[in-house]
Design a protein around this nucleic acid. Structure first.
Length: 310
DNA sequence: TAAAAGGAAACCG
DNA sequence: CGGTTTCCTTTTA
């Protein structure tokens, strides 16, 4: 936010580039506020902050007008009183605020998609999904927004098939939530398209590009290890703080607050639907002799310690 | 009663 | 082969 002008213009570009209509934003906002399943918090970070941020953002713009530009305003108003805070200027400011909000929303959407990709181990671009990826995405989207299970209706479809389908075709396969699923897929498609445009386009670094490069760096490489996965969760307390958190970050001591939940996430990531805490904890115990994770000096239930803290 | 601890064997990229 | 995953028995808080 150090450069409001920059993010304002970027927001404009993104908004139009990815073709997000006001309806799209309305849908996003509605879903963000209404749904709250068990894992809403993990995948919908900063919802409250965002919503609180909106009036705050407006106020800070207003403050700038009143402070930094006050002398300018006075000078202008003396020279030409009609120009000071003319309706046109006001509308411009309002539009800028709106654009800023929109760019924030886009940023949040990208973050959510990044989170989902890491969790499901799928690519952000739906075009690349195989049938398994599609099912994962469906499962994910369904319980994120409390939709009835419709995976069966989309069985054996690849991401490419899915992307080629119209909203009507979605509704045919799932009368209850086809339209919602179509809308969400649309968001993913838009984001993927935007990502492509950003990476080949201008070299100017933007907030959104940072988000994607962050996603790329962690998505690449070998199959993830359990200890890495746990670190990832711990790195995002805003998303996962309810199920796993640091007790002492410096010493690497953490506590699993919701064992079943963490196990479910691990199972999702590794494609092991039968994963549970019994098995996950067995895997953690394998780390004892390897010197990766140990029990803290004062052993407590569900509390472990990284042998080599960051 | 859930969690902790490990042995043993299967699984899989 | 390594890194789990699965299953199991016994012990502990």
């Amino acid at each position: 936010m150090s450069n409001p002008e920059g993010s304002l213009s970027e927001g404009t570009v993104y908004g139009s580039r990815i073709g997000m209509t006001e309806d799209t934003f309305a849908l996003l906002e509605r879903n963000r506020v209404s749904a709250e399943p068990w894992d809403l918090e993990e995948t919908k970070p900063n919802v409250e902050a965002l919503e609180r941020g909106v009036p705050g953002l407006y106020l800070s713009c207003f403050d700038m007008l009143l402070t930094e530009d006050a002398t300018w305003l006075v000078e202008v108003s003396e020279a030409s009183p009609t120009l000071a805070m003319s309706p046109g200027l006001q509308r411009q400011e309002e539009e800028r605020s709106l654009e800023q909000v929109q760019s924030m929303v886009v940023g949040e959407v990208l973050k959510d998609i990044e989170t989902a990709c890491k969790l499901l181990n799928i690519t952000p671009d739906p075009i690349e999904w195989n049938t398994g990826n599609v099912q994962k995405w469906l499962l994910w989207t369904e319980h994120l927004y409390r939709l009835p299970h419709a995976g069966k209706a989309f069985q054996d479809l690849t991401g490419k098939d899915l992307c080629a389908m119209s909203e009507e075709e979605f509704r045919q396969r799932s009368p209850q939530c086809g339209d919602t699923l179509h809308a969400h897929l649309d968001i993913w498609k838009s984001a993927a398209w935007m990502k492509e445009r950003c990476s080949v386009g201008d070299t100017k670094t933007t907030g959104a590009e940072d988000l994607w490069s962050e996603a790329d760096s962690s998505c690449s490489g070998q199959p993830i290890h359990l200890w890495q996965f746990l670190r990832e969760l711990l790195l995002k307390p805003h998303n996962y703080g309810r199920c796993i958190r640091w007790l002492n970050k410096e010493k690497g001591i953490f506590k699993i607050e919701d064992s079943a939940h963490v196990a479910r996430l691990w199972g999702l990531r590794k494609n092991r639907p039968a994963m549970n805490y019994d098995k996950l904890s067995r895997s953690i115990r394998q780390y004892y002799k390897k010197g990766i994770i140990r029990k803290p000096d004062v052993s407590q239930r569900l509390v472990y310690q990284f042998v080599h803290p960051v």
